[in-house]
Amino acid sequence: MSTNPRGPNAIDRHVGSRVRLRRQLLNMSQEKLGEELGVTFQQVQKYERGANRIGAGRLWTLARVLDVPVSFFYEGVSETLNQPGFAEGDQTPIIDDFIQSADGVQLAQAFARIRDSKVRRRILELVRTLAAEEAEAQAAESEQA
C-alpha cells in the first residue's frame, strides 16, 4: 500500500504540533484561533494534528496571529524527520510528546518561573523519584501477570 503523495507527511505534522504549542503557550483556545483565521475549531484541530496541510498564506496568517516568525513552525523539523546522523536514544520524541501535552506546557511554564536553582534541582529529583517508583510498580505488576 503506497502513501498518498498529496496527503500530510512528517513535516505537516511537525508544523501542526508547533501551531498547537504556540497556541497553548498563549493560552488561546482552538475556537479563538479559528475565529482569528476564519475557520472552525475542527479545522484548527486538523491543522494541529497534521491531518490537513497548512497552505503558505494560512501559515503567514498563523504566524501573525500567534506572534511568531514563519520560521518558528519549522524549528526542529530535521529532528522530527529523524534524519541519519542523529544519535540513537535521541530524546526528541519524548520532548515532543511532553511539549505537545497541555500538562507539559503548563509544567514547563511554571518551572521556568522558578529562579532558585536549588528549588529547581529538588523538583527534578522529586520527578525522578516519582518516575522510578512508577516504573517499579509497573515492573512488579508485569511480573505478577
Results as ranks from 00 to 15, higher is better:
Met1His: 08
Met1Thr: 15
Ser2Glu: 12
Ser2Ile: 13
Thr3Met: 09
Thr3Asn: 10
Pro5Cys: 11
Gly7Arg: 06
Gly7Glu: 11
Asn9Tyr: 03
Ile11Ala: 04
Arg13Ile: 12
His14Met: 08
Val15Pro: 00
Val15Ser: 02
Ser17Cys: 11
Ser17Glu: 07
Val19Cys: 01
Arg20Leu: 07
Arg20Ala: 08
Leu21Pro: 00
Arg23Glu: 00
Leu25Phe: 03
Leu25Tyr: 02
Leu25Lys: 08
Leu26Gly: 02
Asn27Ile: 05
Asn27Asp: 09
Met28Leu: 09
Met28His: 02
Ser29Val: 05
Ser29Lys: 06
Leu33Trp: 01
Leu33Tyr: 01
Leu33Lys: 00
Leu33Gly: 02
Gly34Met: 04
Glu35Ile: 07
Glu36Ala: 06
Gly38Leu: 05
Gly38Thr: 04
Thr40Tyr: 03
Thr40Val: 12
Phe41Asp: 09
Gln43Lys: 01
Glu48Asp: 12
Arg49Cys: 12
Ala51Ile: 13
Arg53Lys: 13
Ile54Thr: 10
Ile54Gln: 02
Gly57Val: 11
Arg58Thr: 15
Leu59Ile: 09
Trp60Phe: 13
Ala63Asn: 01
Ala63Tyr: 01
Arg64Gly: 04
Arg64His: 07
Val65Ala: 07
Pro69Ala: 03
Ser71Trp: 01
Phe73Met: 08
Tyr74Phe: 13
Glu75Cys: 04
Glu75Leu: 06
Val77Pro: 03
Leu81Gly: 12
Asn82Glu: 14
Gln83Leu: 14
Gln83His: 14
Pro84Val: 03
Gly85Tyr: 10
Gly85Gln: 14
Phe86Asp: 06
Ala87Val: 15
Ala87Lys: 13
Ala87Asp: 13
Asp90Cys: 11
Gln91Ala: 15
Gln91Lys: 13
Ile94Cys: 07
Ile95Pro: 09
Ile95Val: 14
Asp96Ile: 06
Asp96Arg: 14
Phe98Arg: 07
Gln100Asn: 14
Gln100Trp: 01
Ala102Val: 10
Ala102Arg: 12
Ala102Leu: 03
Asp103Ile: 00
Asp103Tyr: 02
Gly104Ser: 08
Gln106Leu: 06
Gln106Lys: 01
Leu107Asn: 01
Leu107Met: 12
Ala108Glu: 03
Ala110Gly: 02
Ala110Glu: 00
Arg113Ser: 05
Arg113Lys: 14
Ile114Phe: 00
Arg115Ser: 14
Asp116His: 04
Asp116Lys: 03
Asp116Gln: 05
Ser117His: 09
Ser117Gly: 09
Ser117Lys: 07
Lys118Ser: 14
Arg120Asn: 08
Arg121Val: 14
Arg122Cys: 08
Arg122Tyr: 06
Ile123Gly: 07
Leu124Asn: 11
Leu126Val: 10
Val127Thr: 14
Arg128Ile: 12
Arg128Lys: 15
Thr129Trp: 08
Thr129Ala: 09
Leu130Asp: 10
Leu130Gly: 10
Ala132Phe: 10
Glu133Thr: 10
Ala135Ile: 11
Ala137Trp: 06
Ala137Arg: 13
Glu141His: 14
Glu141Ala: 15
Gln144Arg: 15
Ala145Tyr: 01
